[in-house]
Design a binder for these strands. Structure first.
Length: 646
RNA sequence: GCCCACGUGGCUCAGGGGUAGAGCACUUCCUUGGUAAGGAAGGGGUCACCGGUUCAAAUCCGGUCGUGGGCUCCA
């Protein structure tokens, strides 16, 4: 009961301000604006945060009433569909217990059940059908506040022991709410739509076994994933987007373009074919070129090193289950999962002066990590790979400049490759870590200061996401389908220099401990190539294409002219081939198109007479007849400037 | 590692207890053609592997390996 009638100020999207009594619901506000709005509303936002329409407001702020057209409507719809899913499962399988749904409803919903067996595809079809039936009943979603005891009694009576356990997770003092639609009641924070019919379309996507609370030793529950939208059209465009992603899947495109393959004889270790290796090496030489001008020295280090080294580095204790081991001369050896310990050894080969710092070692060394069998996938998660790895050894007061230089290089790479949306995150101390609390606090403060200096507040903090030896800055990019990928990383490390007892002589003549910065820009080249394939659908920029142009004689009569054109382009440095097969032009164009070859040079009678070619781009654009020299110059220029244009 | 699904010619897939099919690709021949598939003929598979059931297994059962989607993990 609100005794003192406190008031709240609400700012509506049109900028107008409403003063309402505390405890007013968003639905009440919507009603006061208009009955139509109140009827259509599926939820509300306060300062961008989701709130249930029936939840009494306790604070003011920017209020948006969310209708089905609103971008966030799906969050309410999917969360509500989640309850409908649990309802449907309980109706079909009364013996099943329901555990919990999903936190993030921006794309999917899910629910976990204890049922003692796996759901079959037929089960899913039946459940989905039952869900539609429930939507047809169009029950209202009710929000009910209850005491902890009441909730406990209710779920205990229903035999829902998983729910009773979930109740204990809710901190003391927090309002406990139930949501009910029809006969189904769930412990839930909300928010939900008003009526089941506001869930316009549902689809169950898949089922899988999951460990209770993610604990590998815990019992296995059965999870069902699905998605829902306000309208069937929304669902359709979602399914269309999934199709689009499937068509760009690098595991499909890679073999189609003859870039790479896998063999069961080396699980999760890619074989790059000549074309794939070309792109791979191009990326590497691009990075090499960038860092060479910035004071990096590239090193080459051993593949297999004594286990003692990994004890020193801490990897043995923390990550030995992800390492490959072998034996030689009765010594235990490990295949390197990282380059850094090797770089520490190089640093320690002589006495270093402060005048030598920063010392920057770059290394494209092949790394092997024994990723668990269930987690590997295409090029994005492999067991054998290399990184554009580097380690900078510097003094404390050089950290800022080194981090900034690293960040700038990383941003330049992403821009060159056509990634413009970038997110930056600071990762702090994880649960498993080495080093003292003081060291961590100091390292985290240092990185934060650098970030603020470079970016202002344009970064996020990701608690617990640091490496085990120090905090890190991660760089994420968004691809052509809007998916986010972590690529670059700058990690600060006070631990390894200490473990390897690295030192340099300062201007004061005393010994000092250097700081180490781990740096990767595109990260694993394998993974990056996978991302780049999906981003471009295999249509790489001209400078990365293994084959840039193909000469297409209109018929075998013009094969000789084709040879002349091809030779002229090749002499200008263009990676070009001649397709002199006795096929029709349309056939050869189709093949070149499917291979994403940027330039198709048609050579027939007209062209032969004038020393030209008709230039067709892989975009389908026809540029007409151009002198061969001009085409050669155009392609060479794109190559030189690493242009994204054709 | 865990749960589920899948594994048929180079690729995409159909079939399914009685010793294998299609399209594309490949080879040869015909066609010499103007911007995303010209025509004909032909070759190619012990149906992932190992074991079991059966008169008979590609098909049913068990195991192994691999792949996919999740879980977990990602220094």
């Amino acid at each position: 009961m609100v005794t003192a009638s406190a008031t709240l100020e609400l700012v509506l999207p049109d900028g107008s301000v409403r003063t309402v009594e505390a405890g007013t619901t968003p639905l009440g506000v919507a009603q006061s604006i208009g009955p139509r709005l109140a009827k259509d509303a599926v939820g509300a936002l306060i300062d961008g945060e989701l709130v249930d329409l029936r939840q009494p407001l306790e604070r003011g702020g920017r209020l948006e009433v969310v209708t089905p057209k609103h971008a966030r409507a799906g969050d309410f719809v999917r969360h509500s569909a989640e309850h409908v899913l649990a309802d449907a499962v309980k109706r079909l399988f009364p013996e099943a217990q329901y555990d919990a749904g999903r936190k993030d409803h921006s794309e999917k919903f899910q629910y976990d059940f204890r049922i003692g067996r796996a759901f079959t595809p037929e089960d899913l079809a039946r459940i989905e059908e039952k869900m539609r039936e429930i939507l047809g009943e169009d029950s209202a979603f009710e929000r009910i506040e209850v005491s902890r005891e009441e909730a406990k009694r209710l779920f205990a009576e229903m035999g829902e022991s998983l729910k009773v356990e979930r109740l204990d997770d809710i901190p003391e003092g927090e309002t406990i709410t139930l949501y009910r639609h029809g006969c189904f009641t769930d412990l839930c924070r909300g928010p939900h739509v008003q009526r089941a019919s506001q869930i316009g379309a549902v689809k169950l996507l898949e089922a899988s076994g999951v460990h209770w609370r993610g604990d590998e030793s815990a019992e296995m529950l059965q999870r069902i994933y699905g998605t829902a939208f306000s309208t069937p059209a929304g669902l359709e465009s979602y399914l269309h987007a999934i199709e689009e992603a499937r068509a760009r899947d690098h595991r499909r495109i890679g073999p189609e373009l003859d870039l790479f393959s896998f063999s069961p004889l080396a699980p999760a270790m890619p074989f790059f074919h000549p074309k794939g290796a070309f792109v791979y090496n191009r990326l590497m030489s691009f990075v090499r070129e960038l860092q060479t001008g910035r004071g990096y020295g590239e090193v080459v280090t051993p593949q297999i090193l004594d286990v003692d080294l990994w004890h020193t580095s801490g990897h043995y204790d923390n990550y030995r289950e992800a390492m490959f081991f072998t034996e030689a001369d009765e010594r235990q050896m490990a295949v390197k999962p990282m380059n850094c310990p090797g770089h520490c050894l190089i640093f320690a080969t002589r006495l270093r002066s402060y005048r030598d710092l920063p010392i920057r070692y770059a290394d494209f060394g092949r790394l092997h990590r024994y990723e668990k069998s269930g987690v590997t996938s295409g090029l994005t998660r492999v067991r054998s790979f290399s990184q554009d790895d580097a380690h900078v050894f510097c003094s404390e007061d050089q950290i800022g400049a080194e981090m900034e230089a690293g960040a700038r290089m990383i941003l330049e790479i992403y821009r060159t490759l056509g990634f413009s949306a970038i997110r930056i995150q600071l990762g702090t101390r994880p649960e498993r870590s080495i080093g003292t609390a003081e060291q961590w606090a100091h390292a985290e403060r240092t990185l934060e200061a650098v970030l603020q200096q470079i970016l202002g507040s344009d970064y996020a903090v990701n608690p617990g996401d640091g490496a085990f030896y120090g905090p890190k800055i991660d760089f994420h990019i968004s691809d052509a389908l809007g998916r986010w990928w972590q690529l670059g990383t700058l990690q600060l490390d006070y631990q390894l220099p200490q473990r390897f007892d690295l030192k340099y002589v300062g201007a004061d003549g005393a010994e000092h401990r250097p700081v180490m910065i781990h740096r990767a820009m595109v990260g694993s080249l394998e993974r990056f190539l996978g991302i780049l394939i999906e981003h471009t659908a295999g249509a790489f920029p001209v400078w990365l294409m293994p084959q840039q142009a193909v000469v297409l004689p209109v018929s075998e009569k013009f094969a000789d002219y084709g040879v002349a054109v091809r030779d002229q382009l090749a002499a200008a440095g263009v990676r070009v081939e001649l397709d002199a097969r006795g096929e029709k032009l349309g056939y050869k164009i189709r093949e070149a198109q499917l291979q994403k070859i940027p330039y198709m040079l048609v050579a027939g009678g007209r062209e032969a007479e004038s020393g030209t070619v008709s230039l067709r781009l892989r975009t389908g654009e026809d540029l007409g007849a151009l002198p061969v020299a001009e085409v050669a110059a155009r392609i060479a220029e794109r190559e030189r400037s690493r242009s994204l244009e054709l």
